[in-house]
Computed example of a mutant assay.
Amino acid sequence: MSDDVPVLRMESVRKTFGGSVVLRDVDLEVAPHTVTALIGASGSGKSTLLRCAGLLEDVDDGAIWLDGEEITDPRADRDAVRRRIGVVFQAYNLFPHMTVLENITLAPRRVHRVPRARAEQQARELLERLGLGARAGEYPDRLSGGQQQRAAIARALAVRPRLLLLDEITAALDPELVGEVLDVVRDLKGDGMTMLLATHEMGFAREVADQVCFLDSGAVLERGTAEQVFGDPRQDRTRRFLRRIVEAGRL
């Protein structure tokens, strides 16, 4: 796929729940091999945007493209689209009755029909890379929160996604475990993985993001480079949000 074509493009995307507008005419492009960070207060629509991008929620209006293919077209093969997108949530969502290795090999074997031996080899390579090589045979409840989240990232990477969606992946972690998970994202950026992430870790977003989008009441109120949005925001609402973040010592 040409690097001139956005991996993800959203145009005039609108989503409501029970009469409440959660996304308001969202336009967004994510270029190949870049990281886009979604920032904003809780309830601003970040998680819903990610879920719509991953076809985990239907949009009420607008359209979404993945590698130039309109995936919101009713004729699109939604299962095939989802196989090209990796998603990691706040909650690790690992199957508790399966070992770490079984969790990671499930989708490659069942969905992509990868032979067991090759799926396990690839999973072990991922686990080694993420510092979990010795934990392959463990069950999730034997892992720390940071280890579980790294295992969840390995599971998302096991399907070799075109796009990785990360939804507040450090929100459920104790502060001392946050760094080990963010280090994984830094490494993925170095590999050229295309990522769209929602985060409250403002310093991290400023460090790794090529593009930052500030959401407010379901709308993308401001977008730009990390340097521009954090260093010289154009919108008063963005400035007020970042001022509170600074006052709270989070930036």
Rank of each mutant, 00 (worst) to 15 (best):
G190P: 15
R75V: 12
V181D: 03
A209H: 05
V87T: 06
E222M: 09
F204G: 08
R135G: 05
D27A: 09
A91Y: 07
V13K: 05
E125W: 00
G190I: 15
R250W: 10
L23N: 12
A219W: 06
L177W: 05
R135D: 10
A198I: 15
D167A: 05
G86Y: 00
V22M: 12
V178Q: 08
A119L: 12
W65N: 11
D232S: 15
K189E: 04
N103V: 03
R155C: 14
Q228H: 14
T105S: 12
T199W: 00
A80S: 12
A119W: 04
L143S: 04
G145H: 12
F17W: 11
Q211C: 10
E57L: 11
T99R: 09
L215A: 01
Q148Y: 05
A76H: 11
G137N: 15
P161E: 03
L56M: 14
E11K: 15
D27F: 05
G218H: 02
G54V: 00
L143A: 07
V7G: 02
G137S: 13
F89D: 01
V59Q: 00
P233I: 05
Q147S: 03
F230W: 04
A219H: 08
V5E: 04
I85E: 00
V159H: 03
V178N: 10
V220K: 03
G249F: 08
G131W: 01
R113I: 08
T238P: 01
V178I: 15
G45E: 03
R223G: 09
E128N: 13
L251F: 15
T48P: 13
Q149S: 11
T225I: 09
L165G: 01
A171N: 09
I169H: 03
R162G: 06
G137C: 12
T72M: 03
P233K: 01
T99H: 07
R206H: 10
P32H: 00
V184P: 04
R234V: 13
S42R: 11
E69R: 14
L177G: 03
A31F: 15
P175L: 15
F230Q: 02
Q147W: 00
V185D: 00
I153T: 06
R9S: 11
Q148V: 07
N93M: 10
I153E: 07
A136M: 07
A172L: 05
E247G: 09
L132D: 00
V246A: 14
D73K: 09
Q228L: 14
R83P: 09
R250G: 06
R24K: 15
L23Y: 04
D183A: 15
R129P: 00
D58G: 11
Q121F: 07
L196Y: 02
L182A: 13
V7K: 00
L188D: 00
G224L: 06
F95H: 10
C52H: 04
R24P: 05
E11I: 10
L23A: 06
S12H: 13
F214D: 01
D25S: 15
L132Q: 04
D167Y: 02
P115L: 11
V185C: 04
V26T: 07
A63H: 12
V5S: 02
L127C: 06
G68I: 10
R223H: 08
D58H: 13
M98T: 05
H112M: 08
R250Q: 14
P233C: 04
G179M: 14
A76K: 12
R234T: 15
A123W: 00
L164A: 06
